[in-house]
Structures are given as C-alpha cells and as structure tokens.
Write a protein that binds this DNA or RNA. Structure first.
Lengths: 136, 136
DNA sequence: AAATTCGCTTGCAATTTGCAAGTGCAAATA
DNA sequence: TATTTGCACTTGCAAATTGCAAGCGAATTT
C-alpha cells in the first residue's frame, strides 16, 4: 500500500493503490462516519489496527491527497486528521460498501435504519454528509 | 486476505475482509467489465498479479461466495469463473470506484464515455450489466 | 516537578508476497 | 500413437510487510 507500486496505467489499478486496502478504507470510514479524527481515535477503534500500520496508512493517504493534517482545536499536542475534497469524494464508494454490507452481514437496527434512509436518496444523503465534513 | 481474520463484528470490517484488497477487487472488476473469466485470463491481464496470489484470492472469493467455478463451454480443460449473485451485488461499489477514478486519473476517452453514460442513470446501467452477468 | 497523554518510531518474529520453476491433466498436433 | 502445448494450479525461497510490544520526545495535566 505504499505509493507507486503499479507500473500499470490502468486508472482503477492506480485508484486501488491509493485506498484499496482494508485499513485505509477503515480509516476513511472512521473519518466519514465514526466521529474519529486523531491518531489515538483510530488506534483505539474496534478494528484493532497496529500502531505502525496505522502510521504507514495515514502517511500513504496523506501522500495521495486523501487526508490532511491540521491543528487540533483542543490542544497543541493533538493532530486532527481530516478528509480532503478528494477524500470526501470517496463517500459514494463507502456508502455502497455499507449497502452491500447490510445485505450480507448482521447489523444493528440503528445502522440499518440509517442505511435505509441513505438508499432512499443516495445523492442527497451524500451531500448532507459531505457538507458536514467540509465545514469541520 | 484469508478468511476470518477479524474478530471484530463490525459489518464493514467483515465486508472488507471479503473483498477489500486490491487483487480481489481487480479480479471482480475483470469479471464484471474485463471480459475475463479463466485463470489465465486474470494472470495475463495488465495488472500483473502473481500466480500464487491469484490462486489464493480466487480461493478466498470462492469461499466467501463471491465467485464460483463452472465448466467452460469451450473445453473440459478450462474452468470458467463467474460471479455469484452476491458478487454481482458488488457492481455499485465497482462503479463508484470507476467514477472516482475518472475524476482523479487520466483515462481513455472511450472509458470516459462509458462512465458518463453510467452516471446518467446508475441503477439502469447496473441492472443492464447485471443482466449480462447473470445470463452467462 | 512528576506523571500522563499524544503521535509516532524501533526491533523483531511471523506471516505474506513476488518471482521462477515445476506438476498433473486435457486437448491439439505430428 | 507419441508428443507437444495449454490450462490450472503448487512449491520453494528470498524479500517485503505485518503484528506486537516497547520506547521516545514533546505537550499537557496534576
């Protein structure tokens, strides 16, 4: 998952080099829907990512312009990671993963309800979430 | 990318264990849009997947019910891999990857045109492709 | 002043990858 | 009929990546 592994010029292959990896996708998901934004947030999150892997994925995502660092409002010791526009544009992909996920795995009624809502008008839902992510 | 790495019961995490990996996604993509269906098709395709990795990914995808083997009409020596319904349901995800890809990577005018068409009515496009995949 | 929190880095064993070569069966060719 | 080719893998091995625990410097809290 480091940069520039493919010599393939296939755009999809290049795209998957950027974020087509479980941990990268989970980080992106956490940023979009998990209310998580610091290194420790990601580290402590359910999935159990190892600290060095987290660091390497954050680096990769930043190098590829998907996320960026910014000062955390609470403290100078903290760093806030946030999605760039390029990263926010991944929303529809993550949404479709959730939709597939709901069809094939058990899920809380709460989450099911949100997904049901999202499916009703995907674009509207995406825009709403994107707005929230941009203003932050 | 073998089965059951996560003890996490997060459905998205479990989903990404099934196909959240560059090679798995490229195989799925090849099955959907690449007109590829045999081991050698995948092996010779642009991305340059190693033969052992290909075997392991095919195994994983089969175990997870995304693809299945079937006899090849041309020859008894050949095996035809095809997407199950569960696999075909991944179409919207792959489509969104293409759409993102088109926004951030150079791409042939031909492919751009197809994506433009797909964006006009995603559901219709998906249904069309799904129909083609099911009948085969 | 001391302890804790934060965002990492480092070391190391274990797993996974990538590459090349090989295997066993089916089918086409000589 | 004998032989070569094509197909779907498997195997061996070096190199890279992972997962885990421990450590580290700067900022913050006590």
């Amino acid at each position: 998952m480091e940069t520039d592994k493919t010599r393939s010029d296939c755009p999809v292959s290049r795209t998957l080099d950027v974020f087509g990896d479980k941990w990268s996708l989970l980080i992106i998901r956490d940023l979009m829907f998990g209310n998580k934004c610091t290194y420790n947030d990601f580290l402590k999150s359910d999935e159990g990512i190892a600290t060095n892997i987290l660091a390497s994925r954050l680096k990769g995502l930043e190098e590829n312009g998907i996320i960026e660092k910014s000062p955390h409002p609470d403290s100078k010791a903290k760093i806030m990671y946030k999605l760039t526009t390029k990263g926010i544009d991944l929303l529809p992909i993550i949404m479709e993963i959730y939709i597939w996920s709901e069809k094939y795995f058990p899920m809380s009624a709460e989450l099911k309800a949100i997904i049901k809502e999202a499916k009703k008008d995907k674009e509207k839902f995406a825009k709403q979430i994107a707005k929230g992510l941009k203003k932050a």
